[in-house]
Structure formats: structure tokens, C-alpha cells
Simulated scan of single mutants.
Amino acid sequence: MSSITRFLMERSSEPRLEAPAPPRDVVDLALQCAARAPDHALLRPWRYLVIEGEALAALGELFARSGCVDATDKARENARKAPLRAPMVIVGIASPKPHKKVPDVEQIMSAASGMSFLSLALSDAGYGIMWRSGAFAYDPVIREGLGLAEDEIITGFLYTGTVSSRKPPVPRPSSGEFVEEWTGPEAFRPWSV
């Protein structure tokens, strides 16, 4: 097994993050890795926002004002604190470009692949990551507050920092649980190694 395969097999999301955040040079290299995502026609249909320091509180205010949070004080306070779970949040944004041969869905998948590459590069540098999405990624108040254009989509909020305590390993399914071999129309058989 190569070191890359071993790394992928051991990768996990880590929700318990604290300072320090990755330094600027590490983040820059990780973003360069993100730009290596498959990209049909070299459209570069992505952009990223790096949020840290006092800007995390401003992001929390956007979360608290969003329409996806219950109108209770407790729910709004929890939303306000959400970005403070890590010393840095990187927002991935799919930014499709008009192209006759590359539909928006391919460009969105490219941007999501970039988020995956970004998370792997930060993990490889020794930092914890937690890719979060959910209702906040689709809320118009948050989209507007982050300056998204009408056709842009949030691919996720990548929380990153130093792991304060590792979570227990998560059981992973074997490939036979989610793969079938297609042998022709309406003909499938279980995948086995």
C-alpha cells in the first residue's frame, strides 16, 4: 500500500479544533492543491473565502440572522457560536462559468473536488478539518452576506485548526456494501475482490 493510499484510509473529519490555525503559507499551498481538481475546459469554477479572527464572529452573526435558525434566543446563540468551533473557516464556492460544452453540474462537481483536495492537503500538513454544509450553505442571508453572485453555490464550510482531541475511529463499510458489477442492461452482480 502506498503512503497516499494509507493516508486516505486513515483520513477522518475532526470536530474538536483549536488554535493555532494553519499558517498562511500552509493554507496557500493547500489552496494551490485545490486548484488541481479536475476542471473540464480549465474554467476554474471556484473561489474561496478564508475567515479567521474577528471575522469568525461576523460569520456567526450571519448564521444567527439566517432564516434556517429557529427564532429562539438559544438557537440564535448556538448559530452565532458555530464558526468559533475552529480558528479558521474556509468557505468553498462553486462559481460556474457559461460554457456550451461544460454544464454547471460538472463545474459544481469540480469545485467540490477542490474542497476535497483542500481538506486533504490541510490534513497532510497536520491540521484537523471538518467539512460542514447543511442549511447554512443554502440560506439567502448567508449567501448575500458572503457576497455570492446569483449563480454561485456554497460547496461547504471547511473548519480547520489544531486537533484538540481525536475522535474515535469510525467504522467504514467494505466496498462490497456499496459497489455492484454491471454486466449489461438490468444485469448486476455483487462486487467481490
Rank of each mutant, 00 (worst) to 15 (best):
P20D: 03
P23D: 04
P23L: 08
D25N: 15
V26M: 01
V26N: 00
V26P: 09
L29A: 11
L31H: 04
L31D: 04
A35R: 15
A37L: 02
A37S: 03
A37R: 06
P38R: 06
D39L: 03
D39F: 05
H40M: 07
A41H: 09
L43R: 06
W46F: 14
E52G: 07
E52C: 06
G60V: 03
E61L: 12
F63G: 06
F63I: 03
F63Y: 14
C68I: 13
V69T: 01
A71Y: 14
K74W: 15
R76G: 09
E77N: 15
N78A: 14
A79H: 05
R80Q: 12
A82I: 13
A82E: 14
P83I: 13
L84R: 00
R85P: 10
P87A: 01
P87R: 06
M88P: 02
I90E: 10
I90S: 04
S95K: 10
P96K: 08
K101L: 14
K101R: 14
V102D: 06
V102I: 10
P103N: 10
V105F: 12
E106F: 01
Q107M: 08
M109Q: 08
S110D: 12
S116A: 14
L118E: 03
L118D: 00
S119T: 07
L120Y: 11
S123T: 15
Y127K: 00
Y127T: 09
G128E: 02
W131M: 09
S133W: 10
Y138W: 15
D139E: 06
D139P: 06
I142T: 08
E144T: 13
E152S: 11
E152C: 06
I153N: 08
I154Y: 07
F157G: 08
F157R: 10
T162N: 13
T162K: 12
